[in-house]
């Protein structure tokens, strides 16, 4: 059973066709890069997987079923923005996640936060943007999910934080789960990707194994991408 399957997926916003005829299958145990420039449809595709919007035509299936309560149990989603209730303390947000997600590992989260010098009594309000983003990443990666979807996890973050984020992603990798990383900063993450999906103007342009692509083109994924989407 494939983890994610899109069949003839279309999404329109009014007259604007944002996704056209998406047909992809993402298996378990892969780290997949969803690569495209801003406005290419990456975030729309991710929202469809997360049941935040509904398809105009076609379907997206998570473990063979339409997105719903059951798919949300196994998907751990890190959106691009700060989505936590700022009035909460770290301990309260940990309790929140543990209440709603049976696969949430509170001890692991506390450990990871400690490494970042964040204590459970800190208030989210008092944290810098970068720290908030790290907290969100820790929360997402502390779940034992089947599918992790990270939307621009390293955008707007300093290099040390970037390394921390990539490290955290790698150390949490387990072969029964997959990770989809959506980003436009390709050179920073390409070395951890198994597969890459190029998306442009709402269409899938390429879906290939990263190393295969490098062998074929003798270039980095970043270089291949830039060439393909030169203005």
């Amino acid at each position: 059973m494939e983890l994610v399957k899109c069949n003839g997926l279309y999404k329109d916003y009014g007259f604007k066709k944002v996704l056209k005829d998406i047909n992809i299958t993402i298996p378990k145990g892969r780290i997949v890069g969803l690569l495209g420039s801003n406005g290419s449809g990456k975030t729309t595709l991710i929202k469809l997987m997360n049941d935040l919007i509904t398809p105009t035509k076609g379907e997206v299936l998570i473990n063979g079923k339409k997105p719903g309560v059951n798919s949300k149990k196994i998907i751990s989603y890190l959106p691009e923005r700060t989505y936590l209730n700022m009035d909460m303390k770290v301990s309260e947000i940990l309790e929140y996640f543990s209440d709603f997600y049976s696969d949430f590992d509170t001890q692991k989260a506390i450990k990871l936060l400690k490494k970042l010098n964040i204590s459970t009594t800190d208030r989210l309000k008092t944290m810098s943007k970068g720290t908030k983003e790290k907290v969100q990443l820790v929360l997402v990666m502390s779940r034992k999910a089947d599918l992790y979807i990270l939307d621009e996890p390293i955008g707007g973050v300093d290099p040390a934080a970037r390394d921390y984020i990539l490290d955290t992603i790698l150390t949490n990798f387990n072969k029964d789960a997959s990770i989809i990383i959506s980003t436009h900063l390709i050179s920073d993450i390409e070395r951890i990707l198994d597969d890459v999906i190029f998306i442009s103007n709402g269409e899938i342009v390429l879906y290939e194994e990263a190393d295969k692509l490098r062998k074929k083109e003798k270039k980095s994924i970043d270089a291949i991408f830039r060439e393909m989407f030169k203005c």
Binding site: I31, D163, D167, L170, F173, K175, R191, I192, D194, D211
Partner: peptide, 14 residues
């Protein structure tokens, strides 16, 4: 090894 090299475990496997 994947941790040390900071790469994807699937790549090390390969």
């Amino acid at each position: 090894l994947a941790n040390d090299f900071k790469v994807n475990p699937n790549t090390v496997q390969r």
